[in-house]
Amino acid sequence: MNIYIKGAGVISAAGNNSDPSFLAEAPGYDTHRLNAKEPDYTAYIQPMQLRRMSKAVRMGIGASKIAGQQAGIEKPDALSIGTAMGCLQDTEVFLSKMIDQQEQMLTPTAFIQSTHNTVGGQIALLAGCYGHNLTYVHRGHSFEHAIINAQLYLHAHPHHQMLVGGIDELVDSSVKVLTATGVYREGNSTEGILHTAGKGSIAGEGAGFFIASAQPAPGALRIKGLQIFTTKDAALVSEKMNGFLAQQQLQQDDIDLLISGWNGDSRTKPVYDVLHQQFSASVIAGFKHLSGEYATASSFGLAMAAHIAGTGMVPGFCRLGSAPARPIRNIILFNNYMHYFSMWHICT
């Protein structure tokens, strides 16, 4: 795989990367739910249009605009988007009304905006983008599949620019259901996520969008490898990682930075304990205490890789290990959402 990231845009609970102070200060919270801190969108979206947009659509368009600005590209040739849950807010609005009003006197707006491809459709509409446009909705691999699709597309269209993004929004019901099923837990704090373990993680949401190309460019991040798998067997993970490093022709010592998807969930603690031990000579940075946990949070991880590559600094409040700082060339991003795992090899 050879995908060059020419621009990144992220909107998250830790703010957005068009803000110069993005990731400059340690987060502090005591909450069970990390809502995205949304920017003032009026720089990107007409107020009339903005009023009709749900959070998922706003965040997606906002993040895509930031990525486009970074890359100096106003209109991508194609789109590839991952969202596990789609537009939950509008889905719930329509569902509630349908039930409360016993299927009568309903209006179409929420239904129209409830489809999973709404974000992709709206971005294409606003940018006048007639190209390829796909939306992946495969749980914890939705964003990864959007990247694999980018690989296929850019191979066939080597001179195109593709907008690739991951997005998910939280609503009360999803937090409730995912808390009941053990994905999320109640009573969290910053410290709690990074340094202690309990059943479940902290609820999060956000959008991470990227301008991807098959052509290198100065300062562009390069995704050199991506491997995905599902497993409920923690013992398998280390074997998978070793296989991935071998496939990428990497020695352990080559890895300068591990961006770790550790999310404070005691069930995956054995996985991350082994992983963090294996990478103890590398700088290790966590991000789930910033983004919160959601199915497409790896898009935040990738945006963080871009941010670190750009600034050359790993924020102290992300550090998990004690290895000394070193110049960053090879990054491994390791993430899981439930039993969905991904391993990325990213080069600066």
């Binding site: 992709g120 796909l134 939306t135 992946y136 909705v137 495969h138 599949h145 699709n149």
Partner: peptide, 18 residues
Amino acid sequence: FVTTISTACSSSANSIMM
């Protein structure tokens, strides 16, 4: 490799494409 695509009425044509 297992994936799900959702692009409204064109969804499964896209899964065949991929």
